[in-house]
Design a protein around this nucleic acid. Sequence first.
DNA 1: GTCTATAAACCGATAGAC
DNA 2: GTCTATCGGTTTATAGAC
Lengths: 213, 213
Amino acid sequence: MRRNSQSEHDPGGTKERIQHVALELFVLHGYEKTSLREISDRLGITKAALYYHYASKQELLKSVTQPLIDEFELLVAGDPDPETLLRSYVDLLHRHQAVFQLVANDHASLAAAELVERSVKLRRDVVRRLAGPEPQPADYIRAAAAFGAISQGFMLARRVEPAADPALPDVEATAEKAAETAAGLPAPADYPEGAELTRILMDTALAVLRSGS
Amino acid sequence: MRRNSQSEHDPGGTKERIQHVALELFVLHGYEKTSLREISDRLGITKAALYYHYASKQELLKSVTQPLIDEFELLVAGDPDPETLLRSYVDLLHRHQAVFQLVANDHASLAAAELVERSVKLRRDVVRRLAGPEPQPADYIRAAAAFGAISQGFMLARRVEPAADPALPDVEATAEKAAETAAGLPAPADYPEGAELTRILMDTALAVLRSGS
DNA sequence: GTCTATAAACCGATAGAC
DNA sequence: GTCTATCGGTTTATAGAC
């Protein structure tokens, strides 16, 4: 066989290049604000050419968001204990930073991808598992707080910034980039990563869960 | 004097009714997806009538988001110690639940309201203050995690659900409502509120900040 | 696989009557 | 303060040539 037609990483593949550019623009401006013309312009093709590869804007969005949600569901379905669940979640975030940033900051994209139900269910299952046995209402709050601590802590350290594409003027991203990087906080590159970052985030989440005892 | 023309609560005032309906729809579907026709239909007036009260869709959005951001800035400008800052933040969330839910979940609305710079600056200042003196990169991460713990914990307990408006069929909200309320987690009304909720959230955030020692 | 051209729908916003 | 009518622009999506 020559090539698997789906989910192959082949960085030169047109479908993958479309996904990459689309994801970047979706994260930057939001799904609704990003037009197909914007995406095709950046790829140097026309809007109509996009439709050869994806049947609709919605399908393009789905193809981008599916890997994260599928893997998350698989993870939760394994019924892991709280610590394993949290550790796997941090690992998931590492491998799907940009998509996570998209769906976390742009609920409209979740809705457009028809992923609201699945993500609500995921969140429910995670919170339930973190809340422990015979949970009080306060235990659910602590579970959600632990989940939020990891998510927000991770996003500070591993935020996807507008790509400084030297080939294009990239006019519209200038303001955002300046506002975030020169904001007086360390740049993403300065934070711990990998195992060290995971350890820090795990400590915050476990501290939250223990804060009720 | 008869009436202050700005920011009076007068629940019968047309401007306030518009803000209320607009906020609800913005939270539900996102700013970009919500059309002025949708808002005016729900108010029983026409789209054109909206323009008598607000010069543009953007101005309507700004009028809705401004109270939260203004008060947040005032709060941070006071240079409070971490515990006071966190406590005031929880109080702020209590008084601006819906607006917070909007800007937290729909970054497109932040951008449209031209509030990205101010909110980035706010976040930076909060994280800095929570990170303590001579912070390491890991301290910033813990600060962001503490902030996220409070925000997400609060949102679980005080989430704004689609209004069950018996006067209108409210077709489009059915799926969302069913998915969220019947999801197997306590309903917002079942969680602690006020001082008790504040105490729980404060404990989670302080536990995160202490997790580095 | 990419193009030009265009259809069809919707949007924000304005003009002007009442 | 609300209405009807409409303008100008953009969007997603399709048809058909190459």
